[in-house]
Design a protein around this nucleic acid. Structure first.
Length: 360
DNA sequence: TCTGGGGTCCTAGGACCC
DNA sequence: TCTGGGGTCCTAGGACCC
């Protein structure tokens, strides 16, 4: 077998919980649930649950109140500590980047792609796991693929702590009879729209009529979803530093906001923070978006372009407040968010940050 | 029963221009 | 009096990711 190009997807096992246990060894073996401010009576969700907690049906995204009901006596609830995870993430990424002849693309706090030319991708995967464990004390799973989509999906079959290879050769054997929902990028809504066309399995998606897919989802997404059925996806791992296009601040109120004056106070506060994140990069703000969740649970977003790009905090805050006048002032508000879109930086002036890509 | 906070990308449809 | 076709920009909103 000769050398070939491979994509490895490295995913940390129960990352946030693992970081917490690392600095509090006495928590090892106990159900650990990290989320919000660590108070399970508050409105917040689970960021990560340890494997011990998952045995009780507790998982990411679950409301803390529900998790508290399911959790056993000895469960531990901890607040989210972004800085600790950021530091651990940096350490992991630096370790992986130091592996010989790899290109690294960060796609989240706890996961990345490695591009590598090798005759033995499993050996590289094992070496990556060993290096990360030795340097940080954290374990990871690795998916091996001939593109990013297959590598990403492969990782699920390797957890925890393992390695799994998914390529064009075994794609349909492994994925053919599984639900479209197991594909990366297919959520509840897309699963339902596919099902309305009689498409429920990965193989049925691969065999779907291309024109029908374009009609249902449009030219780009239609082609993307159809190809997903065959495991198609990009294979290039890109280490270009990621540059944010926008920054936002959101807050969920423990008690719903009822008075319009309270809404204005909150918008001002959030807008100042969102603006500050952009200003810290020296990049003018071009648009403002407002996200509102009315009680009980209905989310709306609205946006406006600013008259011109600005680096004036007052201008941005005023624009956010003006947009706030468009909200339904008669309804109780349980969440508010303000997003600031920025101009993209000049070429050759990249801003190094923690990436959070929406799509590969 | 209760649903966070940080992001990205895509589409539809209207306005406007040539 | 009747009225094409293409392009671009903008807004609003939806869907997905970790």
């Amino acid at each position: 077998m000769g050398f070939a190009s491979w994509v490895l997807h490295v995913d940390m096992d129960q990352f946030i919980a693992a970081v917490e246990v690392l600095r509090r060894p006495e928590l090892a073996g106990r159900p650990v649930i990290v989320g919000g401010r660590g108070d399970p009576t508050e409105r917040a969700v689970v960021s990560t649950a340890s494997y011990e907690a998952r045995q009780y049906g507790i998982g990411s995204g679950m409301p803390l109140k529900i998790a508290a009901r399911k959790a056993p006596e000895d469960a531990v609830f901890l607040p989210v500590d972004h800085e600790a995870y950021e530091a651990a993430s940096d350490h992991v990424m630096a370790t992986l980047r130091a592996l010989p002849d790899v290109v690294l693309e960060v796609i989240g706090w706890d996961e990345c792609f490695l591009g590598v030319r090798t005759a033995d991708p499993e050996a590289v995967a094992r070496e990556a796991q060993r290096a990360v464990l030795e340097a940080t004390g954290l374990r990871c799973s690795v998916g091996i693929g001939d593109n990013k989509v297959r590598a990403k999906i492969a990782t699920e079959f390797g957890k925890p702590g393992g390695v799994f290879r998914l390529t064009e050769q075994n794609w349909f054997d492994v994925m053919g009879e599984r639900s479209t929902r197991e594909l990366w990028g297919v959520g509840a809504k897309i699963e339902k729209r596919l099902a309305s066309h009689g498409i429920r399995t990965v193989r049925e998606l691969a065999d779907a009529d291309h024109e029908a897919m374009l009609r249902e989802f449009g030219p780009k997404l239609g082609a993307w979803y159809h190809g997903l059925g065959s495991g198609n996806g990009p294979a290039v791992v890109d280490d270009t530093p990621w540059v944010a296009r926008s920054h936002s601040r959101e807050i969920t109120f423990q008690q719903n906001l009822a008075a319009p004056g309270e809404v204005d106070v909150a918008i001002r506060e959030l807008a100042e923070h969102a603006y500050a994140d952009c200003a810290a990069e020296g990049r003018p703000v071009t648009r403002v978006h407002l996200k509102v969740r009315y009680a009980p649970f209905e989310t709306k977003t609205i946006g406006r372009k600013l008259p011109q790009p600005t680096l004036d905090r007052g201008e941005f805050v005023d624009a956010a407040l003006a947009l706030g006048q468009m909200l339904d002032r008669t309804r109780e508000v349980r969440l508010l968010g303000v997003r600031a879109e920025m101009t993209m930086p000049e070429e050759g002036d990249p801003v190094e940050r923690t990436p959070m890509r929406g799509r590969i």
